[in-house]
Design a protein around this nucleic acid. Structure first.
Lengths: 249, 249
DNA sequence: CTCCTTTTCGTACGCCCTACGGGATAATCT
DNA sequence: AGATTATCCCGTAGGGCGTACGAAAAGGAG
């Protein structure tokens, strides 16, 4: 099986190294490859880095990478898990904030920070996830936080999942914002400004009365970045309110 | 400006057609191109369809497409807005469900259905969105629903946005599920089954006590598809609870 | 030194998007 | 009518990409 190879690579810390005793010495390490790929992806505004770019940066031939990694997909998985681990969330037994809400907020903040720092996480999916240490640590942390409040197991799982989905969705938005700003060199506000023609020539007030009302009463006064932060915080608090209400009542 | 061209194409129904009076007659129409692209993207498990595939399907040369559409990006925007319009949500004045919660549910159901039917929507972004009729109709509908409950404008905007984000995030998950199942020919449950090695060889119970506890008490008993539906509904209801609580209290 | 294992990497294939520009076609002008 | 002009069609070519293949290099074991 091919995914067993992936698992070995993801969990390479654990277990016996089992290095080959004969044959040519490798000129790189897996961690070097991953780190270089991450650095390159961070720097370049591009959504993806090509194998040849990574190889060139490492001073190696393109095909050399394929001895360290089965293919580009797997390398991407390794990159993802590697930066998710950067969140460095408290493990079991480690000290953590008081109260489940505060714990969830820590998760959200760290996750958002990672997505902002590594915008290419945008394309990361939660179906068929990476199954590496970085992701698992996050899952464990959120479930532990939610478990504190005394929901029945099935609901606890659903609550943890919906929190993770909401957080990742917003993190993805921030990542995307960072990405297009990097790619196009144009701030989101500038983008909207350039699109003012739309409001003048195409937006039909009669077809969009509710939007117009909110607009006129100042509901959209805020630059885009501020608004996004506000929306995220608002939604998260409402979600947590809703979850809490199941228990306290 | 190039995006003015995009706007013209997106809102081609409105406004004067202004057809050219001289020159060779076009052999295709824009709608044909979009429809073919959508059909092809739906059918092929692929995340993206290539211009040459679309052209071949239409019996035209690849470059012919570029007289109808500035580039692939713009075609994708047109595809996205075209299927978003399929939701066919009630416009201002049209009859709609009673109660804002029921209205939001309609939005959620329709949006989910569209994402399921067109899995390639997965890569659609909400930052710098399409600004076409399909998207705007959705925005208007949600804001109208939320406006009913009497939040102050700024909070109403935040509430509408967080609902949209939550719904789209889940829709994206369903789309992704459909996509990989189509691509790999392997159901998500089968995928997890194949990954049982992970739980046996790598999952460390001591590092993940909370997950283990939920697991043992039956929190994860449900096939993946069922669980996803359940999680989505649960989270949406909690979010709506939280929003409602701001007003009723 | 020879054998065997392992790593290195050049070449080649097939796919992608699209800039360019010459040819085809149709309405209008002279 | 013929010429002009606007529009659409599309073949070619260029520069990407990921990676299968296989030959060559390098180092330990016998």
């Amino acid at each position: 099986m091919d995914f067993e190879r992936s698992l070995e690579l993801l969990w390479r810390d654990r277990g016996e190294a089992r290095q080959p005793t004969r044959g040519r010495k490798p000129k790189l390490t897996l961690d070097q490859v991953i780190a270089t790929a991450v650095a390159l992806a961070d720097g370049a505004g591009e959504a993806t880095v090509s194998m040849s770019q990574i190889a060139k940066e490492l001073g190696a031939g393109t095909m050399t990478l394929y001895t360290y990694v089965p293919g580009k997909t797997e390398l991407l998985d390794l990159m993802v898990d590697s930066v998710l681990a950067e969140r460095d969330l408290p493990g079991p037994g480690d000290p953590r904030p008081d109260g489940w809400r505060e714990q969830v907020r820590l998760y959200a903040d760290r996750t958002l920070a990672v997505f902002r720092a590594h915008p290419w996480l945008r394309s990361t999916s939660m179906v068929r996830p990476v199954l590496g240490p970085g992701l698992m640590a996050g899952q464990e942390y959120v479930i532990a936080a939610v478990s504190d409040i005394g929901l029945e197991p099935r609901k606890a799982a659903a609550a943890a999942n919906s929190i993770e989905i909401y957080v990742q969705a917003n993190a993805t938005l921030f990542a995307e914002t960072a990405l297009v700003e990097q790619e196009t060199g144009q701030s989101t506000d500038a983008w909207w400004g350039q699109r003012s023609v739309f409001w003048e020539k195409y937006f039909d007030v009669e077809r969009h009365p509710a939007m117009t009302r909110i607009w006129e009463s100042g509901g959209y006064d805020a630059d885009t970045c501020e608004a996004a932060d506000e929306t995220f915080a608002f939604g998260l608090e409402r979600l947590l309110d809703g979850i809490e209400a199941l228990v306290t009542r």
